[in-house]
Design a protein around this nucleic acid. Structure first.
Lengths: 229, 229
DNA sequence: GTCTATAAACAGATAGAC
DNA sequence: GTCTATCTGTTTATAGAC
């Protein structure tokens, strides 16, 4: 019983891992298939064999990233919300989801490259961008919107709600996306767990500030049922 | 008197304009010098002649973007702050600077490509990124930090201040950066003046919410002098 | 399934005619 | 200053040996 049969899967994984890292660091177009093959200790031909070509490898990376993030968020995004959810509970759920996403780059060994790749793919999407959008961005936005609406007692709705949630996304994405700039400015040694937590604390604080603002603006009373329910 | 002498400047402008648009839309690495030359109705050789090569053209684009943004922000970033600045005045200045930056893509004809290029360059910086960072990001961040500190009466300082300002940057950058995603989700026909204003309203609201949060947290009293002055 | 050699297209840079 | 033809290296994709 040799490892010959499982060699294929190992090569696939190795290629996706290498591609994820290089695409994330330098961008899809800046990286050649040779670099990827070298980095994965595989040969160039294997990319065509396993993925059909460079675009196929990109899609495989996107699918991998989607599966990892969905797994990390787990029930918070896949299961329906409990019907009886107080505004403060909704706020806590929002907060913890942000925390998970922001710390994603620090809690598992390969997650930094996942995070790099994902944020880059969000900004510089391929023609296949629909994949990441439909499977990740859209469901996440939907869930965040539900939670935010409950957290502010229904005071924010429609396009204002959608844009506010995007603005919260923006804060989170920015910290990971412009990591080099932030690390340089802050004089940090890198962007590890400590730094991710520092960024997370700010995002959390801002979330609470924005929620508090909308609550007070519309005469929110703690524990009161939201209108329209 | 022919236009031959001014032809050089026209070619330069044309090449920068074309490069700005293509780099902004597809990224530096994905665009070939041939595409740029075609788009600018110039020949390939002119890129080497005027800019020394593709990297030189990129630097020319960065310099152009820096000059435009600094011009638009004008006195708000280049001149020293007035010594007597009330928290509310500081907040207003912050607000209007955000507004200028966000509407940048809608107030001048070539500004959409400027905005695209800039946000992309921020995320996928060249080895020459120091240019954009030193001349634009850093001074902007410095000014925003000063204003924010005054706006909250000195309640936020040090790394918390720096990160909070970055988080505000993030909101703004995200709206321009993930334009395709947002436009798609909102069902907008595009990202024109109306849409930029809608996004700007949210950013402005969030800014006020965050400032209000820090003011109330530290017992801020309107009109009170900030500590340490 | 793995690896190598090769093909066809493309990149950026350049020399020289005009 | 402009433009074209060409050079050199590199890209992805592929055919075929093992």
């Amino acid at each position: 019983m040799t490892r010959q049969v499982s060699g294929a899967a190992a090569t696939r994984e190795s290629l996706v891992s290498a591609a994820l890292e290089l695409f994330g660091d330098y961008g899809y177009d800046a990286v050649s298939t040779r670099q990827i093959a070298d980095h994965a200790a595989a040969n160039i031909g294997s990319i065509a064999y396993h993925f059909g070509g460079k675009p196929g490898l990109r899609i495989a990376c996107i699918e991998y990233v989607i599966s990892v993030v969905r797994e990390m968020l787990g029930a918070s995004v896949s299961e329906p919300l409990p019907e009886t959810l107080s505004p403060d509970e909704a706020l806590d759920m929002l907060d913890s989801m942000f925390s998970i996403l922001l710390l994603l780059g620090s809690t598992r060994p390969d997650a930094d490259r996942i995070s790099n790749f994902m944020t880059r793919e969000l900004v510089v999407p391929a023609t296949v961008d629909a994949l990441l959008y439909e499977k990740l961005t859209e469901p996440l936005h939907e869930r965040f919107s539900q939670l935010f609406a409950i957290a502010v007692g229904g005071a924010v709705q429609g396009s204002e709600l959608a844009l506010t949630v995007f603005s919260l996304f923006g804060q989170m994405v920015f910290f990971r996306q412009c990591k080099p700039v932030i690390v340089k400015h802050m004089g940090w040694p890198g962007f590890g767990l400590t730094q991710a937590q520092a960024a997370g604390a700010i995002v959390s604080q801002n979330l609470k500030a924005i929620v508090a603002y909308h609550r007070s603006r519309d005469g929110f009373v703690a524990g009161e049922a939201r209108p329209g329910a």
